[in-house]
Write a protein that binds this DNA or RNA. Structure first.
Lengths: 136, 136
DNA sequence: GTCGATAGATGCAGAATACACATAGCTGCG
DNA sequence: CGCAGCTATGTGTATTCTGCATCTATCGAC
């Protein structure tokens, strides 16, 4: 399909939860709440997150298990298909807390940029690097 | 590479900034501040973000331009190699503000989960996440 | 038996990424 | 000059990740 000058075939830039956003969201849910994939997938949607592919959720959970962030076991106590119950490991907690600084910086960057949302004291034209004056 | 039973070859789960985290960080920096790739790459590190591959930063910027989020032009006013100056477009601003809701939910999820884990920081506490505690 | 909901997983094509490397302009220095 | 080192932007490529469709399987209702 040739591209017309009138119809820009720009790829959509719609928000989607995956990668580290998804991983950390899952870990966060598991912090105080053991759960299984299907449940987590639904909570994500209920929490107002952009819709995630359930296949990706399951794969992400397995990968988190492979890296030792979570552990799982089958739960057949209830009727219905067996569920793989996940729980956060020590390593997962550490990883999660390590992400806090990253996320806080990230939030800070975004809120500074958006000015009106951040109740910060002063909004400068220059981006304050937070840790100090950037020297070139 | 075969894995030795002695050396746990678990993939490292270190925080890394890419994908939408990287894209939105770059857009945020450009909100009030026109800049070029090398500069942005350094600001990212100065802002406390995990180190990002500069190649990825350049490619991400080009991709953001392709999707109309930013625009660029060469700057040869200073001595040294030419710089590709980027500036945020209207579409970029809209996309950025559209991300705020996602981010607020994301922050809310993490902050709820991390409540007791997070180091004491003067982060604004705004529990407006719609639902309450997760329950079965 | 068939339908739908639950619960988990995989195959595949296309996209994104990390790492190494390439290019080019400029500065300092012996 | 030659040459190293920094600035500034990119590319090649193998690997990984993602979205979508599809598949298995259990259970209750009809």
């Amino acid at each position: 399909m040739p591209e017309d000058p009138d119809t820009p075939s720009q790829p959509e830039m719609k928000p989607r939860l995956h990668g580290e956003l998804l991983s950390t969201s899952l870990l966060a849910f598991l912090k105080n709440w053991n759960a299984y994939g299907y449940q987590l997938s639904q909570r994500l949607a209920q929490a107002g997150m952009p819709e995630s592919d359930s296949g990706t959720v399951y794969r992400t959970l397995r990968q988190l298990e492979k890296t030792g962030m979570v552990s799982s076991c089958w739960d057949t106590s209830e009727s219905g298909p067996a569920r793989r119950m996940y729980s956060l490991t020590k390593a997962g907690e550490l990883f999660l807390s390590g992400w806090i600084e990253v996320l806080q910086n990230y939030q800070s960057v975004l809120q500074k940029a958006l000015g009106d949302l951040a109740p910060a004291a002063g909004v400068d034209d220059e981006p304050a690097a937070g840790d100090g004056a950037p020297q070139d």
